[in-house]
């Protein structure tokens, strides 16, 4: 039986992690779309930044976020001894 305070601390940390990831997710996708016309004034390697964020930039961030969440939660499991038995 897992103690309830272990579980609630584990979940609290997981929740914080979730909120942080979704905050970045939100700002990168919707934030950059809202200010896209300003970002378009900056051009990098031929790419107007506003268009680039929608077409590729946000996608790169999404992939990184998913890798990060997978890594962090695995570490979290170990920290609280809640990982799967191998």
């Amino acid at each position: 039986m897992i103690k309830s305070d272990v579980l609630s601390n584990y979940w609290k940390e997981n929740k914080t992690l979730m909120l942080m990831i979704l905050l970045i997710w939100f700002v990168i996708s919707y934030g950059s779309a809202i200010v896209a016309s300003y970002l378009n004034k900056i051009t990098i390697f031929g790419f107007p930044l506003g268009y680039y964020m929608g077409a590729q930039g946000s996608l790169i961030v999404f992939v990184i976020l998913n890798v990060l969440y997978s890594k962090k939660t695995n570490e979290l499991d170990k920290k609280y001894g809640l990982q799967e038995e191998e």
């Binding site: 979730m18 990831i21 979704l22 997710w25 996708s29 779309a33 896209a36 506003g50 268009y51 929608g54 077409a55 946000s58 996608l59 999404f62 976020l65 998913n66 969440y69 997978s70």
Partner: peptide, 21 residues
Amino acid sequence: GYDGLAFIMGWTGGYVLLAVL
């Protein structure tokens, strides 16, 4: 043009929700 990017962002960004939630 830019309007079409809704599909690009929408169909990838959903996987963040899926993976995390």
